[in-house]
């Protein structure tokens, strides 16, 4: 239990260069702290009241001394600045042949996608020795993808792609954190980065990543997919528009019909709105919506099966516009559980 760890392991080329700079700055800090600390204690004790000691011609200003102890720390500082900026610029320019991996940050989970479509949550498998570039974006708030062993961190911002690159060296399992405060389970939004031999990685990638089957899509996800495939959003966008009312936050709301009767927008109402929309038309709209009632149970031919309807209803329920609602869709996974079989 008490194996005190003082430094994170070095598992990327940048980590090695980083540690040189880190320990150089530490040496400088310790040097100055000891010099000034000892001087202060020594002077305080040597010149205490009542001590017979030569206190004659004590200057209270000395231009040369002031300039020396301003210029020298400045030069040292600029030295560190030069070294650090050179390293930083290097980390911001990924090589052309880098392996592309895509990362989405969502509230309280990391989702990584490899270029051949293999998906993994809160885990990232990487080949050692080859430069890897992560193209990252967030779906809701600002997160930050941080791998201490690689000494690399980059904020993941909604509305903009950010990138980060590194060359993993030592195979092993390393921590992955989210370092930008992103809400309730910010401290559980982490996971593992598994660095493997390139051959092992290719084989892992070939058989579709972890043989853990990709989580089946939830009903809300399926509903969302249908909502997009049928292009329902063309009329039912975020705001009520001429073609169709917005469906955001309408579940269990009172809806005023064309004949001024008021009906509750429950599951039954939504199902009927899809199957025979002209039965009850909303106030202010005409009968323009096509019916999605399938010809028969097996030949859908453009219609929606009962199961599709349920998914779409589930999706409509998850549409809430008020900012107070947390992002809908996938419930947070049981994150933070270490993978059962950990490659050696």
């Amino acid at each position: 239990m008490w194996r005190l760890k003082f430094a994170p392991d070095q598992a990327s080329t940048f980590a090695e260069q980083y540690d040189w700079l880190f320990w150089a700055t530490t040496a400088l800090t310790i040097f100055f702290t000891i010099v000034v600390g000892l001087l202060v204690i020594f002077f305080a004790l040597r010149f205490r009241e009542g001590k017979k000691v030569d206190r004659s011609n004590a200057h209270d200003h000395h231009l040369m001394l002031e300039l020396t102890w301003s210029i020298i720390p400045l030069i040292m500082g600029l030295g560190i600045f030069g070294w650090a900026s050179y390293l930083f610029v290097e980390t911001r320019q990924p090589p052309k042949n880098a392996l592309d991996i895509y990362v989405i940050g969502k509230q309280w989970m990391w989702h990584a996608q490899h270029s051949n479509g293999v998906r993994e949550n809160n885990m990232l498998h990487l080949p050692s020795g080859t430069p890897v570039r992560l193209t990252m974006i967030s779906q809701d708030v600002i997160h930050s993808f941080f791998i201490p062993a690689f000494r690399m961190k980059q904020d993941v911002i909604p509305g903009r792609y950010t990138q980060m690159w590194f060359t993993p060296t030592k195979p092993g399992v390393y921590n992955l954190f989210c370092t930008e405060y992103c809400g309730t389970q910010h401290s559980e939004m982490g996971g593992y980065v598994v660095v493997m031999e390139p051959s092992e990685y290719q084989e892992w990638l070939a058989n579709g990543g972890d043989n853990v089957p990709v989580k089946p899509m939830t009903m809300v996800q399926k509903g969302e997919k249908i909502f997009k495939d049928k292009a329902c959003f063309k009329c039912h966008g975020d705001q009520d528009i001429h073609e169709g009312p917005s469906l955001v936050g309408i579940y269990n709301q009172r809806r005023v019909m064309k004949d001024n009767s008021v009906r509750l927008a429950d599951d039954e109402y939504l199902r009927q709105a899809m199957y025979d929309p002209y039965a009850h038309i909303l106030k202010g709209y005409e009968n323009t919506m096509p019916s999605y009632k399938p010809k028969s149970t097996d030949d859908l031919e453009g219609g929606l099966s009962e199961e599709d309807v349920l998914n779409v209803i589930e999706y409509i329920k998850s549409l809430r516009s008020s900012p107070t609602a947390p992002a809908p869709a996938i419930p947070p996974l049981a994150t933070g559980v270490p993978p059962t079989e950990v490659p050696n």
């Binding site: 980083y18 700079l21 880190f22 700055t25 400088l28 800090t29 100055f32 702290t33 500082g77 560190i80 600045f81 070294w83 650090a84 900026s85 050179y86 390293l87 930083f88 980390t91 930050s144 941080f146 201490p148 000494r151 690399m152 961190k153 370092t179 930008e180």
Partner: peptide, 20 residues
Amino acid sequence: IGGLTGLYLSSMATDIHLHD
């Protein structure tokens, strides 16, 4: 000590690892 550890955070490379 506080001031000198600020050097780590104002030099860009060391700040990558140590930020937040």
